[in-house]
């Protein structure tokens, strides 16, 4: 079990790191899609099947497509033109900050006595249970998410839509 987790984690981090380092935006987006699929693999490992499939459906299927379309729509020149790092200072500052945050998080995780049973039963939750939870105690949140998604859809269309040429200039 731990071996599988280590393998998933390694692939996940390798894909995410390569995506952040890559100079080709399309490669970045595709590698990141791989990282998202790896996260779905982690959910499967943890026994949350439903979330894993939802993650694949939303991230690998939908978000990756939006990202790829955005990359193609905002390109300057060829899509293969390398996207360089901005400056050494910026990169160094980013990495130092991330390193600091990582140190703090590691200290907190390793310093906290985790009150867990050594061998928990393989947790799993059926779709029926999730449905009952969503429609029962979390019905209000579900409705709000529905409204949020609709508003986000309309907002994205309005923001990204091309103004008609005969519109008066704002």
């Amino acid at each position: 079990m731990t071996l599988a987790l280590l393998l998933i984690g390694f692939l996940l981090l390798a894909a995410a790191g390569a995506a952040m380092l890559s100079r080709n935006l399309i490669h970045s987006a595709l590698l990141l899609t791989g990282a998202w699929a790896g996260i779905a693999g982690f959910y499967l490992w943890a026994g949350a099947e439903f979330v894993a499939f939802a993650q694949v459906l939303v991230y690998v299927g939908a978000v990756s497509m939006i990202v790829l379309f955005a990359v193609l729509l905002t390109r300057q020149g060829a899509t293969t033109a390398p996207v360089e790092f901005d400056s050494f200072r910026r990169a160094a500052a980013g990495i130092i900050t991330a390193g600091g945050v990582m140190g703090v998080l590691f200290g907190a995780i390793l310093g906290t006595p985790m009150d867990v049973t050594s061998a928990p039963p393989p947790a799993s939750i059926t779709v029926r249970q999730i449905g009952a939870q969503l429609m029962g105690p979390h019905a209000a949140a579900l409705l709000i998410v529905g409204v949020l998604l609709t508003v986000a859809l309309l907002g994205a269309i309005v923001i990204a839509a091309v103004d008609k040429p005969d519109d008066p200039a704002p």
Binding site: I26, L30, T33, E49, F50, F53, A54, V56, L57, V60, G61, A62, S64, M65, L68, T79, T80, T126, V127
Partner: peptide
Amino acid sequence: LDAAILYFFAAGTATELAIFMAGWGSR
């Protein structure tokens, strides 16, 4: 599977990625 239908559609999403890879990778 408990969530078989969801799995089926999740498995199908990679088609879109592959088509993009084919189209963009061909230059």
